[in-house]
Structures are given as structure tokens and as C-alpha cells.
Design a protein around this nucleic acid. Structure first.
Lengths: 246, 246
DNA sequence: CGACGCCTTGATCAACTTCAAATTTTGTGG
DNA sequence: CCACAAAATTTGAAGTTGATCAAGGCGTCG
């Protein structure tokens, strides 16, 4: 896969700004020809979204679709009395939006600073009509999201508070760049969510999340540097707690 | 939509067995030309699956994909210690299987007697290659499943036992044929799952499910005929309990 | 410095689970 | 069709987990 980057680097028909872009790996841009990429390039707007900004994506009628270039986006659902559930986290190079489909009642917010690359809806929709591989790519992303949602249903429905927190830490580990994390037993990670958000992801309260993090710390399985940065000391034991699975 | 059935009924190029088939509405067969349908027809095998039979779908390498024609299929995930979570229910005309994608660790079982119409994998995959509308159709089904999974994450993570049971009953109501159910306040429904399965769908125990059903009954919101057949007396109140949503 | 946001910790409480047993339903063979 | 065994459901009592309520610590920013 870094093949493509290497190839792009020497290919002057690939727009400069796309050559080392994460969306060119696994994102929809990975299935485009250099020509299609050049066409698309004319319409893109790159922006930085601050933490907590709502990514209109899921709402406005004529707006844009986007690729996530960096940062973490949280998807959440709300009940009328204020109860909230985070139903998914998205990372680069995920695509935001649903071409041809009506939007759902899900709120998409930047959980961290997020960089996105946005395109007018009709441009993407035309592209999909002309290149079925784009639809295949989006379809695959959605199947992955479906698998993740169902995995999380198991976590929400059947795991204990400790197992939930362990599962969350492992989820973040799995999205930490392996070039940084390696296959080491000891891995330092930054938590993209604050305690209240972790609670909303795990179906717990802030207090319970805090207690279970303390619990993992006292067992020596993790260490807490700053509150948003932890070190996994023993990934095996963490996995054993999280995945009584399969 | 019953337009299509009416049209099919007079169209002698549409295979007889397909003319009033549920898969011809919203299922993948709805996007096929009569010619494609005739081609496909040569390869199909219709079978009846008994309750609890595992629909190989999610496992075997060279097997088949299928349309659900009737009945309810449950998708579940298992932990090594036996804890279980049902992560989805599927109804006609849902498609079972994931063309081109590796299968997941999800178990698909007949929750009731299920009738399916199966095709060799390569036949479907060829069809998809020739007709992009089929992929679009599957993609839409998967997005619907994703929405349902996320809706259920809210139920699992944030609702009380009573709200969960109310949500489940409403889910079944929503899949009850409106020709039978109508828009009446009073609706009789058959529960496709036994208590233990409802519990595994809601992340509860059998006992809690039973108690909350009793609770709803004592409030007069539902009546229980036989254990697997209940009458919703007051859909509005039931919805009020279930959906503090949105 | 003081206020605020965020996190942690402790004490109490409620919801749901677990354990136990009674009751009803279903399936099977005579 | 009945008798009986097995399975499913309901109900009750006690126990646990995680929620709620309350207070305090830590770090940041004006």
C-alpha cells in the first residue's frame, strides 16, 4: 500500500496535494485514476475543524461530503431527556456522508481537531455514477462500520464496566499508527475522548469510567501520564480482560 | 410498489415463481430485468430452514448467498465464556451474505421457520459485476442495517430495562405487515423470539425481560395471549416509554 | 489569585442480576 | 388422547454492579 504513495510521488499527473494524502490509501481517492483525481482536485476545500464543531455533513441539504484527513470524529445519538450514546468513531481516511441516501438523525462532531477535505455533493455523485469502484469503496467502509457497530453492541450489552473500559483502550490502540505503536507490548496512546465521552461511548457514567481506569492502573496494566495520555504496559492482559470474545 | 407485482403478473418473461416473491420488492431481485431474473432463476434453490438451524451463509467458502423469503433470521455474537449478544434481526426480503467480502464472526440462525432462496456465490458475483444496481441495492441494505445497529446501540447503552423491552416490542410491530397491523392503536403481534433470545437482544437476563413484560401488562399497555403472541393495546404509550428519542 | 472545567474518590442507593422454586407449555411415546 | 418428561416462563428473595449524590484535587486561563 505504501506502493501507491511511492508511485504517486513520481507521477506528475497526480495532484501534488494528493500525493501523500491518507485518503489515497483506503479512502475513496485510492480507487481514482490520476485523471479523476485531477478533476476532483479542482473542487476540494480543505478545512480544519475545531474540537466540538458539528460537521454539518449529516444535516444540510446541498452541502458537501468529506474525507477525514486527520483527527477523530464522533458520531452520536441523543434522547429527548439528554441521554446520549456515541455510536461510532471515525478516523482518517473515512468518508463522511451518504451519497444518494437521506441523512440519518446522527450527529457528527469533531472529537479532536480534525482536518477534512470536502467536495460538493453533486461532484461526488457524478463521480460515483462514472466509477463503480467508488461505490464499492464506500460500501466496504459501511460494512466495516457495521461490523464495528455490532462488535460494540456486544460490548454495550454483555460486558462489565471493566471489560468495557479495557475494550475502549484497545480500540484506541488499534487505531494508533503501527509505525508509532509497533507490535510492542508497551504502547503509549493519546485518548481522543474525555471521560464524559468515553462514558457515552461505553454506556457508563463518568465516575465508573474513572474508577475502572484507576482499577486498570492499580493492576499495573496501564499507566496514566496526563489524563488524556496513557501507557498500555501489558497489552496481552488488557486483551484478556476485554475479549472474552470468540 | 405493488405496481411491480401487478406488472410482473402480466409479464410472461418474468419467471412464474418470482412474480409474487418478496425479494422482487426491495430485495435484490427488484433491480433485475426480466431477462436477468430468468437467468438467475436457473440457479436458485429454495429451502425451508427449521428454527435454530445455522444458515451456513456466514461460514462456508464456496457456498451460497440467499434471499430471505419469510421468517426471521437472528445474527449473534458470542463470547468465549458463553455470553451472547444478538446484533441484528433480518426479515424478508433481506439478502444474506457479503459478496466479495470476507465473512465475519457473526452467527446467522433461523429464529423461526425460515424460507430462503439461495444462489451460488459466483452467479451473484457475476450479476453484480454486470449490474451495478445490484451493488447499490446491497449497499442500501447494509446502510439500513448500520442505522438499525446504531439505533440499538442507543437502546443497549442508555435505556432502562422497561424502555428496552418496549423498544423491542415496537421493533416487532414495525416489522409486522401493515396490511395486517394497519395503523390501528391495537395490534396483535407474534414474537419471533423466546424470552432467552429477547434477553440476548436487549442485554438483559431472562428474568428481567419477563418482569418487564409483566410490568407492561399490568399497566394495560400490552396483553399477553399465548407467551409468544401479544396484543399492543396502546401503541402511543408504548412509544412514549421506548422513544425518549430524538 | 480565583473560577472553571475536568477528573478522582468516597458513601449511599437503585436497578438489575443471581439464585431458587413454582408454574405453564411443549414434545414424545404409549 | 393421555401421561410424563423436558423446556420455557414466571415469581420471589437476596446479592452485586454500577448509578447517584457529594466533596475535593488538579490544571488552566483570565
Amino acid at each position: 500500500m505504501s506502493d501507491k504513495i511511492l508511485k504517486d510521488m513520481d507521477d506528475f499527473t497526480v495532484p501534488f496535494m494528493c500525493r501523500s494524502c491518507k485518503a489515497r490509501h483506503g479512502g475513496i481517492c485510492s480507487v481514482l485514476s490520476p485523471g479523476q483525481l485531477s478533476d476532483l482536485r479542482k473542487h476540494i476545500v480543505k478545512t480544519e475543524q475545531k474540537r466540538n464543531s458539528v460537521l454539518n455533513v449529516m444535516h444540510d441539504e446541498q452541502g458537501t461530503y468529506s474525507n477525514i484527513l486527520s483527527g477523530v470524529v464522533k458520531l452520536s445519538k441523543l434522547m429527548s431527556d439528554g441521554r446520549q450514546q456515541i455510536v461510532g468513531l471515525q478516523f482518517a481516511p473515512d468518508f463522511l456522508g451518504r451519497p444518494f441516501s437521506s441523512e440519518t438523525d446522527i450527529l457528527a462532531e469533531a472529537a479532536t481537531t480534525v482536518h477534512i477535505c470536502s467536495f460538493p455533493k453533486n461532484v461526488i455523485e457524478d463521480l460515483i455514477r462514472r466509477n463503480p469502484a467508488v461505490e464499492r469503496c464506500l460500501h466496504e467502509q459501511h460494512m466495516k462500520e457495521l461490523d464495528e457497530a455490532r462488535e460494540w453492541m456486544l460490548t454495550l450489552g454483555r460486558k462489565t464496566a471493566l471489560e468495557k473500559v479495557a475494550s475502549f483502550v484497545l480500540l484506541i490502540v488499534s487505531h494508533t499508527d503501527p509505525k508509532i505503536a509497533g507490535n510492542k507490548e508497551k504502547i503509549e496512546i493519546g485518548l481522543p475522548l474525555k471521560r464524559a465521552e468515553i462514558a457515552d461511548y461505553l454506556g457508563l457514567t463518568i465516575e465508573t469510567v474513572s474508577r475502572q481506569i484507576t482499577n486498570l492502573r492499580k493492576r499495573g496494566i496501564i499507566s496514566v501520564n496526563e489524563r488524556r495520555s496513557i501507557v498500555v504496559n501489558d497489552k496481552k492482559r488488557l486483551s484478556a480482560i476485554a475479549d472474552q470474545c470468540e
